[in-house]
């Protein structure tokens, strides 16, 4: 399995370095003090890039099947599970490390600008509605992790999609069916779990879920659909929609 990781990582090293360099350059550019935008903008950039990277990796791995790259491992001495775990860990290493590096740089930049006031600054500049609704004690030192954890959550969902896809392929399901099923299941799990966190937080207030998905706790169930407008969910829904259309058209032409 380690061997798989070694070769799979090398596939993406160039892209990784470009993304890293790009983001770092961006962070180095805007070193002024109009930082109301800083939190939102920089955080969104990190979010978009890491989610984009995750999606890109998953799509590449799914497309491998179509482009015959699966032949590289087909007759290998590795079991399917080892191959899958190798690819999974490659993905985790790549965006996990990217996320942590950029979060660190992000915090470093804020610290350089604000020194010991930096955590206070973060608190002040978090989503205002959210703060108002929560009104609870926060462990400020956890704030930098919010970003990390939210994205980790997305990453896990995406990895889950890939996992479901490979399992379905093993059972010799048709590729189209696989993609549709795995995207839909993962999208459902993603939404359900978000709702679950909210529910748990309401019913068991002594458990502090504040550090998991702070932003979501601000939304009621009715506002849940607003969540669709966030970049990650939009990608999932959009892709599922496109694939479903293709799937339906294909089925229709088969029956003719």
């Amino acid at each position: 399995m380690l061997k798989t990781i070694k070769y799979e990582l090398r596939r993406f090293v160039n892209l990784y370095i470009i993304l890293l360099a790009g983001c770092l350059i961006f962070f180095l550019l805007d070193f002024n003090k109009h930082l109301l935008m800083l939190y939102q903008l920089h955080a969104s950039i990190i979010e978009i890039i890491t989610t984009g990277l995750a999606l890109y990796l998953i799509i590449i791995y799914i497309l491998d099947d179509y482009k015959n790259k699966k032949l590289l491992y087909q007759k290998a001495s590795l079991t399917k599970t080892q191959e899958f775990l190798g690819k999974l860990f490659t993905m985790i290493i790549l965006f996990g490390s990217y996320l942590f590096i950029m979060t660190f740089v992000y915090n470093l930049k804020l610290y350089i600008l604000y020194k010991h006031h930096y955590l206070e600054y973060l608190r002040l500049n978090l989503d205002h509605t959210y703060l108002a609704l929560i009104g609870r004690d926060f462990k400020e030192w956890l704030y930098p992790l919010h970003l990390c954890l939210k994205n980790t959550y997305i990453i896990v969902t995406l990895a889950l999609m890939y996992g479901i896809f490979t399992k379905l392929r093993e059972k010799r399901y048709d590729s189209y069916n696989c993609i549709v099923i795995c995207f839909l299941i993962s999208a459902i799990i993603y939404y359900l779990s978000n709702y679950l966190v909210k529910l748990l937080d309401e019913t068991l207030p002594f458990l502090d879920f504040s550090y998991i998905t702070p932003r979501l706790r601000a939304f009621g169930l009715e506002d849940y659909l607003v969540n669709i407008l966030s970049v990650n969910s939009l990608a999932v829904v959009l892709l599922s929609f496109i694939i479903m259309i293709k799937f339906i058209t294909k089925k229709r032409s088969d029956n003719q």
Partner: peptide, 29 residues
């Protein structure tokens, strides 16, 4: 696993040099 199949087009990762691909097979097969 005792089948060796050669597809009509070579399968490889685009970063690879010849020796990388050979080492890949050596490591995994």
């Amino acid at each position: 696993k005792e089948i060796s199949y050669m597809p009509s087009d070579l399968v490889y990762y685009s970063y690879m040099k010849i020796i990388d691909l050979l080492k890949f097979y050596d490591d995994t097969h």
